[in-house]
Simulated assay, not measured.
Amino acid sequence: MGIFAAESYISLLVAFAILATAIFAFVNSLLYSPQAYEAAGKLTKTTWCTILGLGVVLQFVPLGLFIINIALLVAALVYLADVRPALGSLRRR
């Protein structure tokens, strides 16, 4: 196995990890009510679902828009690190 084959496998693994993260964040954003987003003081549900849905769709489109994919991955990570815990804390009360 050459170095280029290993690099291809690693790139494929990273792409699947990014896709899985984007899908998980998108599906999770659909589970909360619009009122929960407002109560948590975050962007609206429509806004988050649009951003995260775009992130999932653009992962499947091979346009070479690497910087946009990275920006949408960062949005998914922000959702998972900031918004999701805020929404979850509202549910536990």
Rank of each mutant, 00 (worst) to 15 (best):
A75L: 06
D82I: 13
V56N: 00
I67R: 07
I67N: 09
L65T: 14
P62D: 08
C49V: 10
G55Q: 00
Q59Y: 04
V83H: 03
L63P: 03
V78A: 09
G53E: 08
V56P: 00
P62M: 02
L87V: 11
I70N: 11
L63W: 12
P62N: 12
V74F: 13
F60S: 09
V74A: 15
L73Y: 13
L63M: 08
V56E: 00
V83E: 00
L52C: 05
L54P: 03
L54V: 14
V56F: 05
D82C: 05
L80E: 11
V78R: 02
G64I: 00
A76H: 06
L72K: 02
I67H: 07
V56T: 01
V56L: 03
L77P: 04
N69G: 08
L58Y: 13
I51E: 07
L72C: 07
A75K: 02
L54G: 14
I70G: 14
L65A: 15
T50E: 07
L54W: 12
V61F: 12
L58V: 11
P62Q: 09
V56W: 02
A75F: 06
L63G: 15
Q59C: 00
P85S: 04
C49I: 04
A81V: 05
A75I: 02
P85W: 06
I67V: 12
Q59R: 01
A75G: 04
L63F: 13
F66T: 14
P85A: 05
I68V: 13
V61R: 05
Y79I: 03
L73R: 05
A71D: 07
V56C: 02
I68P: 04
R84D: 13
L77R: 05
Q59E: 06
I51R: 11
L72M: 11
V78M: 00
I51F: 07
L63Q: 08
P62S: 11
I68S: 10
L87D: 00
L63H: 07
A75D: 07
P62Y: 08
V57I: 15
T50M: 10
